[in-house]
Simulated assay, not measured.
Amino acid sequence: MSFSVVTLVKGRKKQLQNMLESIKQGSRLPSEVVIVWMEGKSEQSSVEDDDLNIKQIYIEKGTLPLAEARNQGFRNTSFNSVIFLDVDCICSPTVLENLLAHLKQKTITSAFARYLPYIPFSGDYALTEADAYAHPKRAQLKAYEPLPHKKFWSLVFALYRDDFNEIGGFDEQFTGYGGEDTDFAERFNKLGFSFSLVEDEVLHQYHLKYSPPLNYVSAIVENANLFHTKHGYFPMYSWLQAFCQKRYVAFNANKNQFEVTRRPTLADINAVLSTQPY
């Protein structure tokens, strides 16, 4: 079965190289890998690989256009089966094959993820998998059975081309970080799609993260308000609450939306740096 892999990247060339190395060690090689760079073309935003058919696309915007980048990546695929991979993923040798084997019409198929506390020197799954940690909120999920759509994540998922088109792709009104994947899940759920996991995994390479993610406060607030207008509830609610408690954000009851009231400084952001791998 021919299939496409789509990944997005901004400033994480080493993680991308590790991901590509892990793909090449897998039991099924993709027919193409579509890389969407969310930055301008340069030596640091380009890769070459003689063993993989790579397409590279560039979106030059100041924001983090995740929804647009996923849609652009999809539009540049050539095959009916499409796997989206986060650039931080190191694939197990069998995860791509298992995702393909369990693809069904109107089903979004995903895999488990464990988290590495570092960026490996290589993408060799066997050398790093013993160091990875399960996410405590996802470790108990069951494979091969329908899961609540809100458990969907865009870290790793597979679907058919016609199904992506029926869902309508990702809503490009969401810009920056947050909300676009939950919106995608709400829309596929309303269309009667199911979501399930295969008994396989990817390893997530470490990157800096903040708890709560003050580095994305403006985008999270804007995207949460947009999401509310579409679906009637606020996503990322624990983050919004944390922002309110720290008085960076307030809820405007008259407008029924959240508003940024104070911009975090670099020192504020650094103070909430998380040491957790997930």
Rank of each mutant, 00 (worst) to 15 (best):
V6P: 10
D200R: 11
S154H: 09
H149A: 12
V34C: 11
Q173F: 09
P213M: 07
K150N: 14
F170P: 08
S218Y: 04
R12E: 15
Q56I: 07
E129Q: 10
N98F: 03
Y233V: 00
K61F: 02
V272D: 01
D49Y: 06
T182V: 07
Q241C: 06
A111F: 05
A242V: 03
Q56L: 10
Y248D: 10
S194T: 15
F193Y: 15
A111H: 08
K14T: 14
K142S: 14
G26Y: 13
A67D: 00
E186S: 06
K24S: 15
S92W: 02
Q17C: 11
T275R: 07
Y160Q: 07
N252G: 03
G168R: 07
P93R: 05
H228Q: 08
K209R: 14
K142Y: 02
Y278K: 03
A219K: 04
A113W: 13
Y233D: 00
K209F: 02
F184Y: 15
P136Y: 00
G232H: 05
A101F: 10
R114G: 04
A253W: 11
F157Q: 06
A224E: 09
Q173E: 14
G192S: 11
Q17N: 10
E222G: 01
P146H: 00
G73I: 04
C91E: 13
Q241S: 05
D124I: 14
S122C: 01
K150F: 11
L273E: 06
Y125W: 15
D86F: 04
G192R: 12
P213G: 07
E186K: 09
Y206K: 13
R262V: 08
H231P: 02
L64E: 11
V202K: 03
L208D: 15
S27E: 15
P212Q: 13
G179I: 12
E199G: 06
K55W: 09
K14D: 10
G168S: 06
D183I: 08
Q257F: 01
Q72A: 08
S274C: 11
L127V: 04
V9Y: 01
E32I: 11
S42A: 12
W239E: 14
F258N: 01
G11V: 12
I119D: 08
P213C: 05
N71T: 08
A250R: 12
P30W: 03
A267C: 05
P136V: 08
P213Q: 05
L197R: 14
M1W: 00
N223S: 01
R70D: 02
T265Q: 03
L96Q: 11
D171V: 05
D86E: 14
P30N: 03
T182N: 03
L103Y: 06
Y248E: 05
